[in-house]
Nucleic acid binder design. Structure first.
Length: 194
DNA sequence: TATACGATCACCT
DNA sequence: GGTGATCGTATAC
């Protein structure tokens, strides 16, 4: 295995559910503008698949915001939500088919030791849990939307040697408006052995 | 041009 | 458990 090689576009040009599941245990790496490198193991994902998925932003057609999802896989799709938080997705499937995986949570972080030491354990555990939180800590904003995830971009995913001990599937969070599609078990949550 | 709302989080009780 | 913050986007006028 080559842990430092970013996952290639071919990894993401597959069925979104496969990508969402296989991203669990992989490491999201961010090289900050100041030169520091931070990272974390992906522990929670959600799949958003095509214009027929009412919960997917692409369901309402292509717009300036969502057109990235219609493009080639392996790129970031980042949007602002509730006026204050960013959500980081990775585009999947073939060019022309709108789909993406939302990265909802990270664990086993590297590069936050000093901050974490100042937090109570409960806060520390959920430090990178939640799409808004992880985007804030990783400095991911809409400037990344459309950017291919490569080492050059300073934001990429590498295959890590950490296999999830267990993966559970649940309905996606916060998509009640999507009718029957809100019930699809397209959220993946991994737990890891300590 | 105006308005309603969301793939959330933090803080309150 | 509940609610306020806060603004880009989509949609309605």
């Amino acid at each position: 295995m080559s842990p430092q090689i970013p996952l290639k576009r071919s990894f993401f040009s597959r069925p979104t559910l496969t990508v969402a599941r296989e991203l669990l245990g992989c490491r999201l790496v961010r090289r900050l503008p100041d030169g520091r490198t931070i990272s974390g193991i992906i522990s929670e994902t959600e799949a958003y698949i095509g214009q027929d998925d009412k919960a997917c932003h692409a369901a309402k057609g292509k717009t300036a915001r969502t057109e990235v999802m219609f493009g080639p896989p392996g790129r970031a799709y980042v949007y602002l939500i509730y006026g204050m938080y960013h959500c980081f997705n990775i585009v999947t499937e073939r060019d022309g088919f709108p789909a993406a995986v939302l990265i909802r949570g990270l664990t086993q972080s590297v590069g936050f030791e000093e901050v974490l030491a100042t937090l109570p354990p409960a806060k520390a555990r959920q430090f990178l849990s939640g799409p808004g939180r992880l985007c804030r800590e990783f400095g991911i904003t809409r400037e990344f939307s459309g950017v291919p995830l490569t080492a050059n971009a300073g934001l990429y995913v590498v295959k890590a040697s950490l296999e999830p001990a267990k993966i559970i599937q649940t309905p996606r969070i916060g998509v009640d408006y999507a009718g029957a599609d809100a019930l699809l078990p397209w959220r993946f949550v991994a737990s890891f052995n300590p």
